[in-house]
Amino acid sequence: MIAPTQRNSQTPVQSQIANTQKSSGLASDFETFLKMLTVQAQNQDPLKPLDASEYASQLAQFSMVEQQVQTNDLLSALSQTLGGANLDKLGKWIGMNVRTPSAFSFDGEPVDLFAKAEPAADKAVMVIRESGGTVVDRITVSTTDTKSVWSGKGSDGQPLAAGNYTATLESYGGDKLLSQQLAAAYNQVVEAQISENQVMLTLVSGHVVSATTVTGVRAGA
């Protein structure tokens, strides 16, 4: 039963390899260009020296290639630095218990559930479902409290088996259903990764959620 209380592209390695190959190619072109320019200057006809404007143009190209090589080296170093920072950021999630609106893993211990009824509601019911979607309990809860504790027992008062469950808060105005809201619960994070510029967390329940949905964090056991 519930006791009311008060108030989910390229890998970094592939990208690094591609950047390295591109930088190496530019560096090779840069060295080749420098050698060709030196040989050209050494072997020009004294009676027909290289035109000044053409020589200036080649020097400008030489400068552009040099700057491109330096820029690529800088970007490569920056990418490695940021990659290390991202890994450090991801590592801090592992083992933490995060509160998100998702399925939760039940191991026999009471579970904190977080959801608030609609302001206009005069009745609120927490509906507990097992992983297959079957309703195992319906409990009337407070319309003002945001936190409830589920004991892990079914409607018959018997303890339920360990596994994954969901809790949905239904808000009623009289006999009319106003809304249904997936309650939030704490789950342990077992994996963290970056996908499409978002930190995605894999929970012990097996569900994957975005870090932006996390509304609370607890230290892992």
Rank of each mutant, 00 (worst) to 15 (best):
Q68L: 14
I194R: 03
A27S: 11
T146H: 15
S210C: 05
A192V: 09
E31P: 00
G133P: 11
S24W: 01
A121C: 05
A41G: 05
A219P: 02
D107L: 05
S205M: 00
M126P: 02
P159D: 07
G133D: 09
A85H: 03
S210G: 15
N8F: 10
W93N: 01
N19Y: 01
N86E: 01
S155G: 05
D45W: 09
L50C: 00
P101G: 08
A211P: 07
A27M: 05
M126G: 02
P4N: 09
S179E: 14
F62T: 02
V204D: 14
S102K: 07
G220E: 10
M126N: 01
P49H: 10
K147E: 14
G25P: 08
E191P: 00
Q6A: 11
L178P: 04
D45H: 07
P46I: 13
M36A: 14
V149N: 12
N86I: 02
A167E: 12
Q44E: 15
Q44I: 05
T5W: 05
T5V: 15
R138P: 03
V127T: 06
V209L: 10
L113S: 03
E109D: 13
G152T: 12
D73S: 02
D175L: 08
A52K: 13
L182Y: 08
P49C: 12
T38E: 05
Q16V: 03
N187L: 11
P12M: 00
D88N: 03
G83I: 01
R218M: 13
S79D: 06
A219Q: 14
G132V: 04
P119A: 12
L59H: 00
D45V: 10
E170R: 12
L75H: 05
M96K: 13
V125K: 09
N97K: 14
V125I: 15
F104Y: 14
V136W: 03
Q10C: 01
K123D: 10
Q68Y: 04
I194D: 02
R129A: 12
L75Q: 13
K22E: 08
A219S: 13
Q6P: 12
Q193E: 14
A124M: 09
L182A: 10
A185N: 12
D137W: 05
L74H: 09
G220D: 10
Y55V: 14
Y172N: 08
L87N: 11
E31C: 00
T134D: 15
Q21E: 10
